[in-house]
Design a protein around this nucleic acid. Structure first.
Length: 1119
RNA sequence: GCGCGCUUAGCUCAGUGGAAGAGCACUUCCUUCACACGGAAGGGGUCGCAGGUUCAAAUCCUGCAGCGCGCACCA
């Protein structure tokens, strides 16, 4: 199939030249190659067009394309292609991630399988890394290549890898800068240790899993003051991990626990180790839990470690880095795996009679997200990062979360306080508050539903030393509290026993034609009460003329418009200019998750005991007298991008950095940072980010932090430091039973196979159609099939158009020269039928709906609209109706019809292009829609055509697209539906040609009758106002008139009576419903006028229907 | 324990105050000259439960139940 064939066929009107079914395979490869060769995906930083950019969430080099990638990257491609159609200069920047642990594990496994090593130490660091690089070169690009099959319009000239030399320098630079700011530090701490990968992990890489385990109750023999055993006296402790008891250094009790106060300071004999350990008192211990005695294992439990620090206990490491017991665990256990040791310890304790009991116990155990083995809390020396720019990064998302909201503007008019100076105003304000009884009263905030209490003390504080405007605002206190919007909640800082959290609200006040932002602070007490706080009015600044806050289109020519509500984002820009922008999450609810994490953020363990990754850029001065890495004086540490000049005297830190420590720089490091490259200047900050909510902490949050920390410098001259403006969170792809896709279940279809079977467009359309915003996607191959069917429908609709020949009024030249082939003829307004007007209005509606869907990132809405418009409206009604003219003899009418069809199709293809890039390009070119367009506007490729605009008022007026035209067509289709229903009711086969009679209400043009005939698939529709039907002739009616189906000799009176009775019941029920409402005075008095009119109209319509049915029933012959 | 979702037709889901919707599946009819990857018609829902607000509730509020997901966890 080629574009030539499609065009030639159109000219020669030989339907056989175009396949009846769309065949995607050849088409897709052809156009992808074309786009690449023409450089269509390459972003030009020098372009004068506005920029749109998006960076791909870099897939792991180890990965294969799965349906999650399909969903994620289809969305990115839709956004990119839509932006191109919108006339933006688009950069979609692709690349891959080195994925430290995962890649190293894969390569290690392969090398072990090939017998090249048992452990990577056998090869040594350099040799091993050579193997990883070789592996990466061979397998690394798989996903990226697969994305091309999907049609992704990435700028492949800018593909990046997180281990590229330039990228690596960025990582090092960032490390060095943060080190110099003392934000990166080395520390010996309890970390999450993955014994399988033998590396530390960050908190985020630990998954808590509910696990069935046991609670072992152990008896520790009590010693007397002389250190001798006291017969039959024990302290009982409970543990889920008996093997750790070998490293116990104390038993802890709560100091208030009267059962044990007398034991504090005594000692017990640690069994198996036969070591006396003290009984200590610590508040951490919950007397209510278990026996109230806790064994303390300082080196293997974070809480115990904290207690050990408080009590200066020694640290005994009994479990080593591989999860095996150390020599310190004692001869019997040395070298055992921790799970084997558990059994051995339990066995030994049982033998010694020190195991009191074992209970079944369900608890949460941390597992390594990568290796899926239980995490070992492990004491080791690691590098940590104290997050920078946390406040800004937190607030920009909180602002984004409420940016879509509007806050009602409270007007002060008529409530000004008496007085001119501050003291007088304050007096009036307090007087007003007292008189109105506001003090001690709660007001319900509409945004949160919280009752917010106003206290006298808060008020008097609020009015001290505030500006007159602030005090004036007090006159509207209840209204402001009631209407304010919540924008952020934070823990009380510093921590306070009475106050849990502080909530910041924002209200809007109009005073003397000027708009004021009114931030309100509310404190939440521990008991849940909300207090209007004295800081409430502190920041009521930023008052600017009201007009400055209104977009021009709202402003019009009115000098002082009356606003009822204003976008919160506009107000907040005043309060928080430092942030300089905001980030919106879609769906918004994820911003809560984000805020929660950001407000409880802990230092990030960034070092990993791996070889594959960015090596920590720190060198230690070699020394023979010192243990490596510990107790190193600062003069013996060198942190820099380059090794020290006398590098032979130094050795580099062996560890590498967490992979996410490189990915968090992705949005700018890929664009050439720290150089001020043209790409960076043009395309940073990026516009959208598309990713999964499971990596909000790993990646999204850290990128925002990095953006503020590294891109906030003024020298970049950027409008914003933030890395992106919108984050779209995809759902998880599940199978149709709702289970997660997994290899072991075998429920994870290969996208490439689906593409081979159905086409990439079909896969894209099916996926998007079933993926509503923020919901998990239940994947069903049926959806892809539906996508294929849809493409086929589109294909055939265009094929039908091509068979009709030229729209130019004269047939295309027989020799087929392309100049003679005018695709879009002029539409003559005087020749438009009601059907033409109807489809143009439906197109207009579809464009509007799709624009709205895009604005809200609701891609499934957009596909639903496309589907409805094209299939149900264009194909099922318009095309069928158009056959009346196309098969008729009026050449001018026919040409005009084709012009409308071309208009609609050329718009449709552009609307479809982001979703179905391949087939739309094939048809765009094949139908010749590109031919009269400049190269940059669709002449070369549909990719750069203009996105359709809704039809404007002038257009509608010029073509007479008004409500009456739409109504006529709708009524026609309604009557056709009723007529078809008669056919069915009387069991007339679909292929039987019928003769209908129409008794029209008014005048109907012959062409309209012909359309009705065609749509009814009738032999004839006889128009006869005076028709007197035989008794019992079936009839249906609507606003256009009565449609009768004379069935001489075939009338089944009983069936017709049954049919009409059913309709009568329906009509009477509806009349009853409408009448009941309209007879209710409460309803008629309170309801808005348009609703009242609607119901009145409805009543009349159903009453008419009732009369028609009654007449038809009366007309039935007696049984 | 805290937080967030979800509950509407057999299935998957739209629908944030004014007559219950879509696709799939199902039933019946039709190979009519774009398309059987198609066309036509049809059946099918007390919108999880109970209260409340309202002239009006799938929609707003309050409880409750069930399912799912995060976060934090006491050995």
């Amino acid at each position: 199939m080629s574009e030539i064939a499609l065009k030639d066929t159109a000219r020669t009107s030989e339907p056989g030249g175009i396949p009846k079914a769309y065949e995607p395979q050849a088409v897709e490869d052809k156009w992808y190659q074309f786009w690449c060769e023409q450089g269509c995906f390459t972003a030009n930083p020098a372009s004068s067009k506005p920029a749109y950019s998006i960076v791909i969430p870099p897939p792991n080099v180890t990965g294969m394309l799965h349906l999650g990638h399909v969903l994620n990257n289809t969305i990115q491609d839709i956004l990119s292609r839509k932006a191109r159609l919108d006339g933006k200069e688009v950069l979609w920047l692709p690349g891959t991630d080195h994925a430290g642990i995962a890649t190293q594990a894969v390569v290690e496994k392969a090398l072990r399988k090939e017998g090249k090593m048992k452990h990577r130490d056998d090869l040594g660091r350099e040799k091993f890394l050579e193997h990883v690089w070789a592996w990466k070169e061979k397998h690394g690009g798989i996903i990226i290549q697969q994305l091309k099959k999907l049609g992704c319009s990435c700028d492949w000239t800018r593909e990046r890898f997180t281990m590229d030399p330039e990228y690596s320098r960025c990582v090092q630079k960032v490390f060095v800068e943060l080190y110099k700011k003392d934000l990166i530090y080395r520390g010996k701490r309890m970390v999450n240790w993955d014994p399988a990968a033998r590396t530390a992990l960050s908190d985020e890489e630990v998954e808590m899993t509910e696990t069935k385990g046991h609670l072992w109750h152990l008896k520790y023999p009590l010693l007397d003051d002389a250190g001798c055993l006291m017969p039959d006296q024990f302290v009982v402790v409970a543990t889920t991990r008996p093997e750790t008891m070998l490293g116990d250094e104390a038993v802890a009790v709560n100091p208030q626990d009267e059962r044990y106060t007398k034991l504090i300071g005594r000692k017990v004999l640690l069994p198996l180790q036969n070591k006396p350990i003290p009984i200590i008192a610590d508040d951490f211990v919950d007397p209510q839990f278990g026996t109230g005695c806790v064994k303390v294992t300082p080196a293997h439990d974070p809480n115990d470690y904290a207690m050990a620090t408080r009590h200066n206990l020694p640290l005994t490491v009994v479990i080593g880095p591989a999860g095996n017991m150390t020599a310190a665990a004692g001869e019997d256990f040395d070298g055992l795996d921790r799970m084997e040791a558990r059994e051995a310890v339990v066995e030994e304790l049982t033998e010694q009679g020190l195991l009191l009991k074992v209970e079944d116990y369900v608890h949460n155990v941390g597992y390594s997200q990568r290796s899926h083995v239980p995490i070992e809390p492990y004491l080791s020396e690691q590098w940590f990062l104290k997050y920078p720019s946390v406040d800004k990064a937190t607030q920009c998302v909180e602002l984004g979360a409420i940016a879509g909201k509007t806050v009602p503007v409270v007007e002060l008019a008529g409530r000004e306080l008496a007085g001119t100076d501050r003291a007088e105003l304050r007096e009036s304000a307090m007087k007003l508050a007292r008189e109105q009884g506001w003090i001690g009263k709660s007001f319900r905030n509409e945004d949160t539903g919280w009752d917010i209490l106003v206290r006298r003390k808060s008020l008097s504080h609020a009015f001290n030393n505030r500006s007159p405007v602030v005090i004036q605002a007090a006159a509207m206190l209840p209204e402001l509290i009631r209407t304010a919007i919540l924008w952020r909640s934070v823990p009380h800082d510093p921590p306070h026993p009475r106050f849990k959290r502080v909530h910041y609200f924002i209200g809007a006040l109009k005073l003397a034609e000027e708009l004021y932002c009114v931030p309100i602070t509310v404190k939440e007490l521990a008991d849940g009460r909300m207090l209007y706080d004295y800081k409430a009015k502190k920041a009521a600044l930023g008052g600017k003329p009201l007009v400055a806050h209104l977009p021009e289109e709202k402003l019009g020519s009115q000098p002082a418009p009356n606003v009822a509500a204003i976008n919160v984002a506009d107000l907040l820009a005043d309060v928080n200019p430092a942030i300089g922008g905001m980030i919106r999450f879609h769906p918004e609810r994820w911003s809560k998750t984000y805020t929660h994490w950001m407000t409880n953020i802990k230092d990030w363990c960034i070092s990993r005991q791996l070889w594959w990754g960015h090596r920590v850029p720190v060198w230690y001065r070699k020394s023979e007298t010192r243990n490596p890495k510990s107790e190193i004086a600062s003069v013996d540490i060198c942190c820099g991008i380059e090794p020290p000049s006398d590098h032979e005297n130094w050795e580099q830190d062996p560890d590498v950095l967490d992979t996410w420590f490189s990915s968090w720089l992705w949005p700018f490091a890929t664009m050439g940072w720290p150089e001020q490259t043209p790409t960076l200047k043009k395309f940073y900050p990026t516009t959208d980010l598309v990713t999964g909510p499971d990596i909000i902490f790993f990646w999204v949050a850290r990128m925002i932090v990095a953006g503020y920390e590294f891109m906030g410098e003024p020298r970049f001259g950027l409008p914003d430091a933030l890395p992106f403006r919108n984050v779209y969170f995809t759902g998880i792809i599940r199978d149709k039973l709702g289970r997660k896709m997994s290899k072991s279940l075998g429920n994870s279809p290969d996208p490439l196979e689906l593409i081979a079977q159905y086409g990439a467009d079909a896969l894209r359309f099916g996926t998007m159609r079933s993926a509503p915003l923020g919901q998990d996607v239940l994947f069903d191959e049926k959806d892809v099939e539906l996508g294929r069917n849809f493409c086929n429908k589109l294909w055939n609709a265009c094929r039908f158009r091509q068979m009709q020949g030229s729209a130019g009024g004269s047939p295309a030249a027989a020799n087929g020269s392309s100049e003679a082939f005018e695709m879009e003829g002029e539409i003559d307004p005087t020749l438009l039928t009601s059907d033409d007007k109807w489809i143009l209005l439906r197109l207009d509606q579809a464009i509007r709906e799709i624009d709205t869907a895009f604005a809200d990132y609701k891609f499934s809405d957009a596909t639903a609209t496309l589907y409805r418009f094209f299939w149900s409206e264009y194909c099922d009604w318009y095309v069928e109706a158009s056959k009346a003219a196309l098969q008729g003899s009026d050449a001018a009418l026919k040409a005009n019809k084709l012009a409308v069809i071309d208009f609609v199709l050329s718009h449709t293809l552009r609307l479809f292009h982001p979703f179905l890039p391949f087939i739309t390009e094939e048809l765009w070119q094949g139908m010749g829609f590109n031919q009269d367009l400049p190269e940059g506007q669709g002449g070369k490729t549909i990719m750069f055509a203009h996105w359709p605009k809704p039809l404007d008022a002038d257009f509608k007026e010029h073509y007479g697209l008004d409500e009456s035209a739409e109504k006529l067509a709708s009524a026609k289709y309604e009557l056709v539906g009723l007529g078809r229903n008669l056919r069915r009711e009387f069991n007339l086969p679909a292929n039987k040609k019928l003769h209908y009679v129409l008794k029209p209400t008014g005048n109907l043009a012959a062409s309209e009758i012909e359309v009705i005939r065609l749509l009814l698939n009738a032999e004839a529709v006889e128009v006869n106002p005076a028709f007197v039907p035989e008794k019992g002739t079936p009839v249906v009616a609507n606003a256009l008139g009565e449609l009768l189906l004379p069935l001489a000799g075939l009338i089944d009176v009983a069936a017709e009576r049954a049919r009409l009775s059913k309709e009568l019941d329906k009509a009477r029920a509806e009349v009853q419903k409408a009448r009941a409402k309209l007879e209710n005075p409460q309803f008629t008095q309170k309801v808005p006028p348009h609703v009242l009119a609607e119901h009145q109209k409805r009543l009349v319509e159903w009453q008419t229907k009732e009369q028609q049915v009654l007449a038809a029933l009366a007309n039935l012959p007696p049984v």
